[in-house]
Design a protein around this nucleic acid. Structure first.
Lengths: 107, 107
DNA sequence: TAAACGTACAACCAAATGGTTACATATTCA
DNA sequence: TGAATATGTAACCATTTGGTTGTACGTTTA
């Protein structure tokens, strides 16, 4: 396989619904691994693997605090997705797309 | 594995860089399979599989025209990604995010 | 200090993913 | 009609993905 496979692939990171749910949880609050794992019907180990993938995409980071590892969200890499999407918004053809493109440029 | 795995998963569809490139090509012009395949360093069969996944996500559709099958883009399902992203924009904290949220509501 | 807690990680596994080759079928055109 | 063109599809394969269990290790806390 070729596929370039950038190590920090945000598109691949958000492709999984479990990982999107992790992001939602962390958008509410930073949380230790065990608390995140409690929200899912899978082992803590499995959740840890998802956390690693999100970490590689730099969407989250974890700090050690005592015996816990506390994860927090970093949504900035989502700008790559946002910019990718922006290209396709012109194909929607709704009236506000022009205004939104102008707003985009100010960022 | 659980993973819900909706048959029309737009997040999974756009996770692959080849499929994103297919979308870009089709955003320029509708094209037959062989023309799409010419842009990639892989077999036509492999490209066809990507076209099937994009079709299942309803991001493209193909019509038979003579011996050709011509694909065109349908970007509408990307709104799901856009809406998902919108939730995280408030975490950016840039000054225009409020205006953009208002604009969003008009659609 | 010993037990409980939270995490790390190795080893393993089934299924999905992303690719291949080979061959069949439908359409066009000389 | 027969050859060339465009696509469809079956069979196969290696790697990745998403999960498991078991064990080890550092940190609290009774």
């Amino acid at each position: 396989m070729v596929a370039s496979a950038e190590k920090h692939d945000v598109f691949k990171a958000i492709a999984d619904s479990t990982r999107r749910e992790v992001l939602r949880l962390l958008s509410e609050n930073e949380r230790p691994i065990s608390e995140i794992a409690d929200h899912f019907d899978m082992s803590r180990t499995a959740v840890t693997k998802h956390l690693q993938i999100l970490t590689e995409a730099e969407l989250i980071s974890g700090r050690k605090e005592g015996r816990e590892k506390i994860y927090q969200i970093h949504p900035e890499p989502l700008t790559e997705v946002k910019q990718w999407l922006a290209y396709y918004e012109k194909f929607w053809g709704n009236k506000l797309s022009m205004l939104k493109h102008l707003v985009e440029k100010e960022e």
